[in-house]
């Protein structure tokens, strides 16, 4: 019954070792539960990984399906991200799936989202590469649009100032003695407005082209993202509204143009005096309409900006603009 102390010491060592092995086994299981599961490695190439790290989660339609296994810099513009994906999920992944990088909550970790692609494609296999979506391309188009609309807003406010001066100012007669300069000012403003409107239309056309391209060519990366989600639909309707506003601006501009040319051709002040009140009023009304139109345009533009896909890039654009302004101011000084 009595056991020798050597036996007891061996038992003690055995118990301690057993405990250590048990704890470390639990640790390993807890650390990477996929240790005992079969996993696949797939790759994706990014230009910018926004602080993604090894071990971050990979999600497929919101489900955790694996972790980031490795991140390798391939060359100066592309980064290879290798993901370890659970075997069970891999049978649902197709080669046309798209990887994007997002963040998990307000202050959360970065995650890699995989969005299923549209249409038929081969099932994914170990070592395959999937496409990625980087938001920079789409953003460039929309930022030019933003700039145009801002220009339009500035110009219309200029026009308003002039007409305000006409109505409230030093009386119509006195004003129109300075006829030429005044009309020149108006003309210049209106021309600028026209230019802006043109560029806006051009941008809009571009956007329209892209959007229709999305709809027709469903395999395009952005197309999938836009077609698939509600935000894509919203984006389209916003673009339609923009177009409408832009044409409205156009018609109004032509009316202003007509008035201004009337002033010019109607041989200056005397003729003008006859038509004084009505003319100014119509001018003013027109400009107000223009204003309304640009306001609408801006509204739509804001809606576009607030679209989640493009938010970040507009912000960046704004920052850049401010920076340039500051620089310009400095240069002036």
């Amino acid at each position: 019954m009595e056991r020798s102390s050597g036996h007891k010491i061996r038992l003690g060592i055995f118990v301690i070792l057993g405990t250590i092995i048990f704890v470390s086994a639990i640790y390993l299981i807890g650390q990477r539960q996929e240790m005992f599961r079969k996993t696949y490695l797939i790759e994706a190439y990014f230009q910018n990984i926004n602080g993604l790290q090894k071990g971050n989660n990979v999600r497929y339609s919101g489900i955790d399906i694996g972790t980031i296994n490795d991140i390798v810099m391939v060359n100066d513009t592309s980064i290879r991200v290798i993901m370890r994906i659970d075997e069970k999920i891999i049978s649902h992944l197709k080669t046309n799936a798209i990887a994007t990088i997002g963040s998990d909550g307000l202050v959360g970790n970065m995650i890699l989202n995989i969005v299923p692609g549209k249409g038929d494609a081969r099932m994914i296999q170990d070592g395959d590469t999937i496409e990625t979506f980087s938001k920079i391309g789409a953003d460039d188009i929309l930022s030019t649009l933003g700039a145009s609309s801002e220009n339009a807003a500035i110009l219309t406010s200029d026009l308003l100032k002039i007409t305000d001066a006409m109505i409230n100012g030093e009386g119509t007669l006195a004003l129109f003695l300075n006829d030429t300069t005044m009309s020149k000012d108006i003309k210049k403003s209106v021309n600028n407005l026209k230019n802006a409107s043109y560029s806006a239309t051009r941008s809009l056309n571009e956007l329209n082209n892209i959007i229709s391209n999305f709809t027709t060519n469903q395999n395009s990366v952005l197309g999938v993202l836009l077609n698939d989600s509600i935000s894509g639909q919203k984006l389209k309707s916003v673009a339609v509204n923009l177009e409408k506003s832009s044409t409205e601006i156009d018609t109004m501009l032509s009316r202003i143009n007509k008035v201004v040319s009337d002033i010019e051709t109607g041989e200056g002040a005397i003729n003008y005096l006859v038509h004084d009140t009505t003319l100014v009023y119509s001018l003013r009304q027109t400009i107000e309409n223009v204003n309304e139109g640009t306001a609408k345009f801006n509204e739509n533009m804001d809606a576009l900006k607030n679209n989640f896909l493009l938010r970040g890039y507009f912000k960046k654009q704004e920052r850049q603009l401010k920076k340039e302004e500051r620089k310009a101011n400095k240069d002036k000084e």
């Binding site: 056991r3 102390s5 007891k8 010491i9 038992l11 003690g12 118990v15 301690i16």
Partner: peptide, 11 residues
């Protein structure tokens, strides 16, 4: 003695 103690405790 440590291992002896653990061993005895286990027994």
């Amino acid at each position: 003695t440590f291992f002896l103690e653990i061993g005895e405790l286990s027994l």
